[in-house]
């Protein structure tokens, strides 16, 4: 959960500590299909934070490998549905479609950016990683990450305002 997420404004910098779930293209496709077919989801989306990330393999002795954000706009077509199903926040890189901004406003969500192309640096903020769904997708599986002081910048706030439209 994000405390006081509705007070955040586009451009604000946040250090987040808590739970986030990785999911990217194929996991989104499956989640959307499960929602459409009213099937049980492998993760509880209520209040959840999804990180658009497919990490590398985990080197020996590390919690996780390199794990930076992937391009968010590829997930745009699934995002309104996921927000409707309870998703609270997303972490990624780059701009989003207008319908995503509208959905964020409607469901009072928030879209964060994090350091793009800095997967080695970001791995230092991940304290635990556990595979929780879709292992057949390899790096595109859903991982549950416990992060500490993970650096975020508010990209789109709960009023639908975007950092890129100033």
């Amino acid at each position: 959960m994000i405390p006081n997420s509705e007070k955040l404004k586009a451009g604000d910098e946040v250090l987040f500590s808590g739970t986030i779930y990785t999911a990217r293209d194929q996991a989104h496709k499956r989640l959307a299909k499960a929602i459409a077919n009213k099937k049980k989801l492998p993760i509880n989306l209520k209040g959840a934070i999804i990180y658009y990330c497919g990490p590398t393999a985990t080197p020996k002795g590390k919690v996780i490998g390199s794990c930076g954000p992937t391009t968010s706009s590829r997930m745009d077509e699934f995002t309104p549905l996921l927000l409707k199903a309870g998703l609270k926040a997303m972490i990624g890189k780059g701009s989003r479609a207008a319908e995503v901004s509208r959905a964020i406003k409607k469901y009072k969500g928030v879209y964060f950016l994090t350091y793009a192309g800095c997967g080695a640096l970001l791995s230092k903020y991940v304290k635990r990683a556990k595979l929780v769904a879709y292992p057949d997708l390899g790096p595109e599986a859903i991982y549950k990450l416990e992060v500490k002081y993970f650096p975020l910048i508010v990209g789109i706030d709960s009023k639908g305002r975007s950092i890129y439209e100033k």
Binding site: P59, K62, G65, S66, G68, C118, K124
Partner: peptide, 20 residues
Amino acid sequence: AIIDNASIAESEKLAICQDT
């Protein structure tokens, strides 16, 4: 941060970016 990332990648033997 990008420059730090490169130095962490090299010293800790991690990929510079997860998209290898």
